[in-house]
Structure formats: structure tokens, C-alpha cells
Amino acid sequence: MTSHTSTPSALAAFTLLAIACLTIMVGCVIVPGLPRIAEELGIDHGVGLLVTLPALGVVLFGPIAGRLVDRFGLYNSLMAGLIAYGALGMAGAAIHGPWAVYTDRLCLGAATAVIMSSGTGLISALYTGSARLTMIARQGMSIELGGVVFLFIGGLLATIGWAWPFVLYLVAWIFAAMLFCFVPRLQHSPQERGDEGGRDAAVPQSLKIVFTAAVMSMLCFFTGIIVLPIALRELGLNEAQTGYFLSFISLIAVGAAAMMPRFVNRIGEHRTIAIAFACKRSVKSP
């Protein structure tokens, strides 16, 4: 099969951006109904692990996901990741007990790692120049919009029954069908990945700062996303109302992401990060 030479269709672009939403969906689907879902699954302690374990799975299995992409190609890896994502996500409603549930959530994170690496790789391979930069920017916006949509729908489904939010994971199978129909296959060429350069290079100090800021921001994010559903339930809000609240937060994030380039250009990267953490510090639990 020959490599791709023309610009992908609008449907192909939409498919790749829709797939990107799965990265945030993996944890947020069950967040609006988290307290009740934990009770039904037999999780007495460690409720927050239901949300954080998929993220841990992404970290642990990220290197393995990269090797799978090298071996089987971007397209095949993405297809396999989508199928596994839907199956593992839906299985969460059918199992019971901490160990079974935690194992399933960790494996779901592994499938997400495959989707993240191969999905982003496909965008980089199918697009070049300014088109690639545009798609990468849209990918970030799509992830935030996914939080708005899936938190909202997850809250509505949680009011019908505690297990209904898990049905949303099957949207990955719809995306797999779209991938098959609309996204062109690429000739796999692992030799282009360049294994010999930079493996032993020291990490620059500026990059260490970026890593530290990313870790701290993720700690703030997951702390809020776990504590808020419990606090809002104590205030008398149901699952749908919790979903509305959390999806509105994600909607604000979409607007902030759109304004961020201008904001950074005006005051600089370091001041922007400092202001962001100051805003997180000023927020108090209800």
C-alpha cells in the first residue's frame, strides 16, 4: 500500500478529533455518579481510584503502547485500542469487588495509552505544515469539549441507573467504525521513527520545570474531580446536577484554551503558570 499523499477528508479529521475525546472521557464518564457507582461496585474505600487508575494505566503502559505502535502500525494499533477501550469500559458495570474493578480500570488506561499514542501519531503522519499545527490545536480543544459533552451525558445517564454511564464507553466502537470508513491507512514504516538519537541525552532544566508543573496541575485536577461529586452530593445535588456543574467547568476550560495563546503572548509563560496555580489555590471546596 502506498503512503498517504493528499489531505484527508473532513470526515477523517472529525473522526480523529472525536477519538481524541476518549482520553478525557475515560475517567469523567462515571464522575457525576461516582459515590453511588462505588457503592454498587463494592468499593468501600479508595473511591477516587476509579477515576485515577485509568490515568495511572496510561503512565505505566505508555512505553508498551509505543512499542505496539512501532510493531503493528498506527492504524492497526488505534483500531485495536478502540475495540479494547469499549470492551473494558463496558465491563466495569458487570464486575464487582475492589480487585476486579481496579484491574479493569488499570487495563482501560492501557487501552487509552494506545489510543493516545496512535491517534496523535496518525494526525502527525496524515497532516503536514500548518495543517498539522491546526489539527494539533483542534485536538486539544476537542479533548476539553469531550469533557463538557461526556460529563453532561454521564450525569443524565446516572439518574436513570448507576450502570448506565458505562454504556458511553461503547462510543469507542462507533469511532472504530468511523476510523475504518473514513481514515486512510498508512504504510507502516518503523524505520522512520529514528531510534538512535537522543535516548541518553540529559533532560534540560526547562523541561524539568514543565514536567513538575504538569504533575502539580494533574494533582489539582484529579483532587477536584474526585472531591467535588462527593461534596456536591452532601449538598443535595443529584447526579444530573453534578454532571451539569462539572461540564460547565470543562466548558470554561474550552474558552480558556482558546484565549491562552493571546494570554501567554502578553504576559509570558511563567506568569501564566503562576496565575493558574494561584487561581487553583483560591478555590475552596463547597
Rank of each mutant, 00 (worst) to 15 (best):
21 C>L: 07
160 I>N: 12
54 P>N: 04
140 G>E: 08
49 L>I: 12
232 L>Q: 04
26 V>D: 04
113 A>F: 01
92 G>C: 07
223 T>R: 07
262 R>P: 02
151 L>C: 02
255 G>V: 02
220 C>F: 13
51 V>M: 10
121 G>W: 01
104 D>L: 11
18 A>M: 06
236 G>T: 02
278 A>R: 06
54 P>K: 05
132 R>M: 12
57 G>Q: 04
252 I>L: 12
93 A>G: 10
64 I>W: 07
73 G>Q: 03
182 F>W: 13
64 I>N: 07
244 Y>T: 06
278 A>Y: 09
96 H>R: 06
284 K>T: 15
171 V>C: 12
213 A>H: 08
112 T>D: 06
158 A>K: 02
266 R>E: 00
228 L>Q: 10
264 V>N: 03
253 A>N: 12
235 L>T: 14
46 G>P: 03
22 L>E: 02
219 L>S: 15
283 V>P: 01
55 A>Y: 12
70 D>V: 08
204 P>R: 01
150 F>N: 00
131 A>W: 10
185 R>T: 00
85 Y>D: 03
2 T>F: 09
263 F>I: 07
170 L>V: 09
281 R>M: 14
98 P>A: 13
178 M>T: 11
281 R>E: 14
168 L>F: 01
266 R>G: 00
211 F>C: 15
182 F>S: 03
75 Y>T: 12
2 T>V: 08
123 I>R: 03
268 G>R: 03
200 D>K: 13
267 I>F: 06
140 G>T: 08
248 F>L: 15
52 T>A: 07
257 A>E: 07
213 A>V: 10
102 Y>A: 04
250 S>Y: 12
254 V>A: 09
